[in-house]
């Protein structure tokens, strides 16, 4: 039943990035697996049958991070547990918070940043943070000719990994400013986000960047709301905003991410959003207001 080429390895366990890329080149049908928290659940449920696997567990070089021109180069195999720790939290606070919120300890110990991006689940907790940070994905390819993809392009499906390519690093800017990630859930214990909001401040560019997760297939950026609120902030003085401004920002974000239905073309009554959707919009608004408020505090 297996579709793998005769003689090809069913499971490769490369020790270096080059070996991993070579293994993928040998068998382009092979699926890279890092923490396996999504992939193996699908395999165990009989939903996925990868022809072969390239295990990334031994790739020590992708499990940490490096610094480059005011950016952090995060290894794709960085686990959520590692990102939760205080040293990482000091670098990219919102990503650390999202990693801490991403499921129970067993999942955080295994699940990786790269896996979160490639799985691209709408509720993926790190995704809105990466979108707000405007992270860049560094992709390794067999010819040594790697390329860079903005994370939003991959998540929106504007670009995708080609066969043989491997997500190696994620480049995020080090902004040295407050960031927040807030997540609404139905229970107190680990749970998928009903909605999540990441807010990052970029004082150098005098920008507020915000992304909303879990309410759409990919994180949403309310660009107008970002620009409007950034213009209100006194970047050289006390950054705090009045509660009314924060609330207006929240409503702006909520409206941008969950807009009212377009009026009916025939001039009839405009469609109404379901009460549960309106609650979701209010949830997004509250998260955005709180997130920005905490970032500017």
């Amino acid at each position: 039943m297996s579709t793998h080429a005769p003689g090809a390895q069913l499971v490769a366990l490369p020790a270096t990035l080059d070996e991993a890329v070579a293994a993928l080149a040998d068998n382009p049908a092979a699926v890279p697996v890092a923490g396996g928290t999504d992939l193996m659940a699908g395999v165990n449920a009989g939903m996925l049958r990868p022809a072969a696997l390239v295990g990334l567990g031994r790739l020590a070089e992708l499990r940490g991070w490096a610094y480059q021109d005011g950016h952090a180069l995060l290894g794709a195999c960085l686990t959520h547990a590692r990102m939760s720790r205080p040293d990482f939290s000091a670098l990219i606070p919102a990503l650390a918070t999202a990693a801490r919120a991403a499921g129970p300890p067993q999942v955080r110990n295994a699940g990786t940043l790269g896996g979160n991006i490639i799985s691209a689940a709408p509720s993926g907790d790190t995704l809105p943070v990466l979108a707000a940070l405007e992270a860049t994905l560094l992709v390794a390819a067999p010819d040594g000719e790697g390329r860079q993809i903005p994370v939003s392009h991959l998540l929106a499906g504007r670009d995708r990994l080609n066969p043989g390519e491997l997500l190696a690093h994620v480049r995020v800017p080090l902004l040295h400013a407050p960031q927040t990630f807030l997540k609404a859930t139905a229970r107190t214990g680990p749970s998928r986000a009903l909605a999540s909001v990441a807010v990052v401040l970029d004082p150098l560019r005098r920008e507020v960047r915000c992304a909303v997760g879990a309410v759409a297939p990919m994180p949403l950026r309310p660009l107008d709301a970002e620009r409007w609120v950034a213009s209100l902030v006194d970047w050289d003085g006390q950054r705090g905003l009045a509660p009314e401004a924060l609330a207006a920002f929240g409503d702006y974000v909520g409206m941008a991410c969950i807009p009212d239905p377009r009026p009916a073309g025939d001039g009839g009554e405009p469609a109404q959003l379901a009460p549960a959707v309106l609650h979701l919009r209010r949830t997004v608004a509250a998260l955005a207001r709180r997130g920005l408020g905490r970032a500017l505090r």
């Binding site: 918070t97 801490r100 919120a101 807030l182 997540k183 609404a184 859930t185 229970r187 107190t188 214990g189 680990p190 749970s191 509250a286 998260l287 709180r290």
Partner: peptide, 12 residues
Amino acid sequence: WLLPGGPDGAGD
């Protein structure tokens, strides 16, 4: 404080 939404949650 363990607010609704859990640790690191959105509780205010």
